[in-house]
Design a protein around this nucleic acid. Sequence first.
DNA 1: GGATATTTGTTAGCATTGCTAACTGTTAGC
DNA 2: GCTAACAGTTAGCAATGCTAACAAATATCC
Lengths: 146, 146
Amino acid sequence: MSIPRKPPEPKVIERFHHLAIRLLRGLKRVDEAHGFSGPRASALSVLVFRGPQSLGELAAAEGVKAPTMSRLVKAMQAEGLVEAEVTSHDQRQIRIVASPRGRRLMLKARELRLAAIATLFEKATPAEAKALETVVELLARSLDEA
Amino acid sequence: MSIPRKPPEPKVIERFHHLAIRLLRGLKRVDEAHGFSGPRASALSVLVFRGPQSLGELAAAEGVKAPTMSRLVKAMQAEGLVEAEVTSHDQRQIRIVASPRGRRLMLKARELRLAAIATLFEKATPAEAKALETVVELLARSLDEA
DNA sequence: GGATATTTGTTAGCATTGCTAACTGTTAGC
DNA sequence: GCTAACAGTTAGCAATGCTAACAAATATCC
């Protein structure tokens, strides 16, 4: 028994593409207005939601190479956003932790981003809200298996 | 007569946010795999779809300041992606045009991006395809009025 | 008509963020 | 224990964003 399929029109794909770009561009503005942006916010959310990470883990989570993350961590340390220390059992690794201040700022920034997105959907009808859920499910499935 | 409303759950917003980030990150990879990326592809699509632009217009369309676009145009000229010349009536302005090669490469890159997105939706059921259309409509409406 | 202001683009110089290559120190394996 | 592999750091390059300061052309205002 096969599942019925009906891929969306190319036109819809194009519009979706364009909208995704515009959305992220807008979010970038939200971040910049609030101070620390991009890589800092992203690395901090990993540290807050997944807990302390080694440099390698954090670099992998963010999809960047070790030297890039090394420099970012150093900068964030100087700004009091994270703390780093050598772990007990393996003297090579470092353990990076979000500082209370880093945690607070990240959560605030995240809140603003989510609020900005929520605004876009606030006028949704019940049917549209349901459609959004459906699309989120579909996208999550596709991205996870990719 | 008021329209019934039912904003989506915060959880759905969060997931949508996360998925949008993952999607764009993936597209960046697609671009990088193919050579020229980000600002070049984006500026070229403005030149191809809206036609020749002055430097100021192009900078505004891309949301960057004039010096940034000035440098980008110079680099793209050197790479044979665009051509620039002084306009007839106002000797201050330049008229930037996509070269045939720039046009071709941009269209190819765009095709790859859209194909990557299409892949995500190719297993959609008819109901899911309809839901995507609904969300695209809703998003477009919200972003346009913002 | 000519002095002054505005507009358009460029140049110079700085910050951030990505990379690779080369290095240091630590751990693991033979 | 010697050597190989691993974890991070440092140095240096490229791309992309910015502001400040400038040159040239055009508009504006007596």
